[in-house]
Structure formats: C-alpha cells, structure tokens
Simulated scan of single mutants.
Amino acid sequence: MNLDWSVFCKDTLTGEVAPRCFSFLFGMDPNADPTYLDWLISAWGWTIAVAGLSLVLAMVMGVVIGTMRTLPSKHLVNRLCIAGATAWVELFRNIPLLVQVFLWYHVVPAFFPIMKDFPSYLLVSIALGLFTSARIAEQVRAGIQSLPTGQRNAAIALGMTTTQSYRYVLLPMGMRIIIPPLTSECMNIVKNSSVAFAVSVPELTLFALQAQEETSRGIEIYLAVTGLYMVSAFTVNRIMVWIEKKTRVPGFIAANPSSAH
C-alpha cells in the first residue's frame, strides 16, 4: 500500500501539484486556486462552527428544560412546565437525528417562510442543538435530583424563593455533578455534526466524500478527516476535564437520584 500525501497539495481544479499548499486559504496568492489542503482546513472550520453553535443552543435549552423537570409539582403552573419539558425531551430524543435535520431543512421552512433564507449550516445547527438539548436536559434533571433534599430545604428555610434556590444552590451543584456525562455529550456533538453533509454544508464528511471521488485517494483523505475528528473531540475532552477539576467541590458525594424525592 503506497500512500500519496501530496494529494493535499494538488489544485482542486486542475489536479496538478500547487507550488504552495496554503496559497489560497491564507491569502499568500489571491489568484491561486484552492488546494485540497485548503479545502480540508476550511471544512474543519465548518465542522467546528456547526458543533459550536449547536452546543451553545443545546446547553441553553438543556439547562432550562432539565431544570423545569425538577420543579416542585405543588402548583398548576409548575405541573404544566413539567409536562411541557417532558414532552420536549421525549419528542427530540425519540426522532432520529438525520430525520430531524431533514425536517428543519425541508419541512419547517414551508410553515415559516422566513426560514427559507436561513443558511443550511444554521438549520443543521438548530436541529443538532435541539436534539442534543433533550439529552443534556436529562443529565441536568439527574444532577439536580441527585442532590440531598436537605440542600433544597435549607435554601427554602433561609427564605430563598424557588428561583433563588435554583440559581444559588441547586444548579451550581447539579452542573458540577454532570460534567463527566456532559463531556461525552460535548464530544458527541462534534461527531454528530457530520450529518451536516446531508444538506450540503461543506464540513469534513462532505469534503471526504467529494475529495475521495475526485482524487481516488480514499485512504489518505479518510485518514486525514478521521484524525481531525479525533483532535477535535480530544480537545473538547481535555477542556471539560480541566473545567471539572476547577469546579469540583472537595469531599462532596451526590445522593442516589432515586432517594432524592
């Protein structure tokens, strides 16, 4: 098996080896055609962009929905919030991700015409973000419910409102507890961003499919793409591990979630 890594320095239009692999991407020669290495780095940027946007949406919605599922069920409004949050989780968790991407790309804009002007990467980010939010919501719910009931009772005894008890006591502790499973979810969102190829977002998977077809050098192309996915996911893992170490509460042991009620 002979590997030809020079394929990445080839011009994407002529197929000839370019004088500089990065001429187009970094503006060294504005008149140069992009090489496959230019295309690869650009695709990596799109992967990171889609994953980043999706993660922000997933974290915001996941924390809100997960918190709503742990509200005290004494009042009608709280019960409605719990029912709505549960429906959200079950809806987005039980529909395949690729189907959700197609729904947001083909179906939702038919009902909301303004979304027809949205770029495809934004629609994919919404689909991936909402899909992941349901999973994060369950982690947030489990984290809050794993806290000893004394923490909630102590907050109420100190005169805190429900909102204050969540803001100052329950959420800060609950979020610390769920960092390990949240790390896996953050890594998954990088890998799941590969579904963006289905709606022609020029990310890593689409690059691999098209570059392999044009160059017939599938081994080199897929090895490079696999390496970039691994680097991206591993970087996310190291960042989350660092956050876990910085936010860990010494000596704290979470209660069994089943005993939190």
Rank of each mutant, 00 (worst) to 15 (best):
L25K: 07
F26K: 10
D29A: 07
N31K: 05
D33T: 08
D33R: 12
Y36G: 07
D38H: 04
D38S: 09
L40P: 00
A43N: 05
W46F: 11
V50N: 11
V50K: 09
A51C: 04
G52H: 12
G52S: 15
S54Q: 08
S54W: 09
V56L: 15
M59G: 00
V63D: 05
V64H: 08
T67K: 11
R69V: 03
T70Q: 01
L71G: 04
P72H: 04
S73R: 14
L76E: 15
V77A: 13
R79S: 03
C81K: 13
T86R: 15
T86P: 00
A87D: 02
W88G: 05
W88C: 06
P96S: 10
P96W: 03
L97V: 00
L97A: 03
L98Y: 00
V99N: 00
H106D: 02
H106V: 00
F112K: 10
M115K: 04
M115I: 08
D117H: 10
D117F: 07
P119L: 14
Y121C: 09
L123V: 06
L123W: 07
L123Y: 05
V124A: 11
S125E: 09
F131C: 11
R135W: 01
I136L: 15
I136D: 03
V140Q: 13
R141Q: 15
A142I: 02
A142H: 03
Q145F: 05
S146N: 13
L147D: 04
L147N: 01
T149I: 06
G150K: 06
Q151A: 02
A155C: 10
A155L: 08
I156S: 00
T161C: 05
T161Q: 06
T163R: 11
Q164I: 06
S165I: 00
Y166G: 06
Y168M: 01
